[in-house]
Simulated scan of single mutants.
Amino acid sequence: MDHVEVTEDRISTDNTTRLVSSPSCGAISVFIGTTRDNFDGKKVLRLEYEAYVPMAKKKMMEICQQIRDKWNIHRIAMIHRIGVVPVEEASIVIAVSSPHRKESLEAVGYAIDTVKAVVPIWKKEIYGDESSAWKENKECAWKDTS
């Protein structure tokens, strides 16, 4: 019932939502993470993602199980894009269905925070002057805290 994917293709929010839709559920909560055109006063042209795909998918499935352990959830879909992601396009789409909205809303929030903290996917921002910087998520479990 859970669908996890790491892809170089553009992510369809409609298709992702369809993966979790069910007549027994009254709620589908969706998080869409998109590329914005600025960071810290710099113009962002695009993002470039890299991943250790087998481990990323494994960690995403573990997050699905953690969600199921905490909430009454029907279906979960997590799709993360790698490669070049232009401004306004989705880097990640997470959809969660449940009988009632509270569970799916809480679960989708937990999902994105946990994906950013533990899934081995790395992001590089490309700026207007073609300079770039690898970005570390503040939630990242392996972040140097010294």
Rank of each mutant, 00 (worst) to 15 (best):
Y52D: 07
V53A: 09
V53I: 14
V53N: 02
P54Y: 01
M55K: 09
M55N: 07
M55P: 14
A56D: 11
A56T: 05
K57M: 14
K57H: 08
K58W: 09
K58V: 08
K59M: 14
K59L: 12
K59P: 09
K59A: 12
M60A: 02
M61C: 08
M61R: 14
E62Y: 07
E62H: 11
I63H: 02
I63R: 01
I63N: 03
I63L: 01
C64Y: 09
C64A: 12
C64I: 08
Q65S: 13
Q65A: 09
Q65D: 13
Q66G: 04
Q66K: 15
Q66P: 03
I67V: 14
R68T: 09
D69C: 08
D69L: 12
W71L: 10
W71N: 10
I73E: 05
I73K: 06
H74T: 13
R75Q: 14
R75E: 14
R75Y: 13
R75S: 13
I76M: 10
I76D: 08
I76N: 04
A77D: 05
A77M: 04
M78S: 05
H80P: 07
R81Y: 03
I82V: 15
G83A: 10
G83R: 05
V84S: 09
V85R: 07
V85F: 02
V85P: 03
V85C: 11
P86C: 09
P86Q: 07
P86L: 06
P86F: 08
V87T: 03
V87S: 00
V87N: 00
V87M: 00
V87A: 00
V87P: 00
E89T: 04
E89G: 02
E89N: 07
A90Y: 04
S91D: 11
S91W: 04
I92R: 05
I92D: 08
I92S: 05
V93K: 09
V93D: 07
V93F: 03
V93I: 15
I94P: 06
A95Q: 12
A95C: 13
V96C: 10
V96W: 13
V96I: 15
S97P: 06
S97T: 02
S97C: 02
S97V: 00
S97G: 01
